[in-house]
């Protein structure tokens, strides 16, 4: 169930090892950020924990792996395919599960989306089998920076997450749709009283978040291995990111994702097995310092 890159060697010592550890941490942080946005948005707008988010992530990753041969090995096209494929799935989940549970106890939403996750994971096992698959690094070269070999692919992931951050900032601050969503995050009732159909925008946000989760899943495939249960672990980590960053706080999510990615990498350097547990310890500390009373 390990989430740390399998090429990561905890045994390295010295300053060079630390630089590559930090680089790995930033890569994990970038992936966590891309995945967590959707969770943070649905959490912030609908107060729903969407367990099906993990399913969308898994589907995105599997779609990339199986479509790669059809696109003649073009990684970019396969990533785009992985992202597009989840749009109808996300729409169906939103339309037939989440929308039917508006206004009801949120516990039912948690259980229902978990049920969707169970069904989807079992379907993945059915289609692709339970044995882990892997995809090789699409670029394969590494740049030497400060005497450390850094794979270019990871640097691209970090750059891409920064790009996503900038685009989302612009989207939420400059466009009407983005502003409506921000207003809905702040006060749903007041936004609705202005005559705005908030739910329509929320379902748009839901699909956007799902696409980003699929993007994160697709980008992560070359670093880790693919298996039907890969979503469970990532979901908990992204939840920790959302909690530490603040519900529905986009910038907080960004900072928290990279901070927790570094926590994972640094812990993993000394004790590989403890890296994920450390994230939850940080989350518990964050909750003690700043309790969430929703």
């Amino acid at each position: 169930m390990g989430l740390l890159p399998r090429t990561h060697h905890g045994a390295e010592r010295g300053g060079e090892g630390m630089i590559s550890t930090i680089a790995y941490g930033l890569t994990i942080g970038a992936i966590l950020y891309i995945i967590s946005i959707g969770l943070s948005l649905t959490f912030g707008t609908m107060r729903i924990v969407n367990f099906a988010h993990a399913l969308v992530y898994t589907i995105g990753a599997y779609a990339l792996a199986s479509s790669l041969p059809f696109f003649g090995g073009s990684f970019v096209l396969a990533v785009i395919f992985g992202v597009v494929v989840v749009i109808p799935l996300a729409y169906l989940i939103e339309r037939f599960v989440i929308r039917r549970l508006y206004g009801q106890s949120i516990d039912y939403a948690i259980i229902a989306t978990y049920a969707v996750l169970l069904i989807g994971v079992d379907a993945c096992k059915w289609v692709w089998g339970a044995t882990p698959l892997s995809v090789s690094d699409p670029i394969g070269t590494a740049w030497t920076i400060l005497g450390v070999d850094l794979p270019v692919y990871r640097l691209i992931i970090i750059a891409l997450s920064l790009l996503v951050f900038v685009v989302l900032e612009l989207f939420f601050r400059r466009t009407v749709v983005g502003k409506v969503v921000v207003a809905g995050l702040e006060d749903k009732e007041a936004t609705r009283s202005l005559g705005i159909n908030v739910d329509k925008y929320f379902s748009f946000v839901f699909i956007l978040g799902s696409c980003l989760a699929a993007l994160g899943g697709a980008l992560y495939v070359p670093i880790t291995s693919l298996h039907p249960y890969m979503g469970f672990q990532v979901l908990l980590l992204s939840f920790a990111v959302v909690i530490v960053g603040g519900l529905g706080n986009m910038r907080g999510t960004f900072v928290a994702a990279f901070a927790l990615g570094l926590v994972m990498a640094v812990t993993g350097r000394f004790w590989g097995a403890a890296s994920e547990t450390m994230v939850f310890v940080v989350m518990a500390v964050a909750l003690i310092v700043k309790p969430i009373e929703v």
Binding site: V49, L236, P291, I292, E293, V294
Partner: peptide
Amino acid sequence: RTTGACFALI
């Protein structure tokens, strides 16, 4: 101290 979704996930 938490409720709802936070309680479940913590």
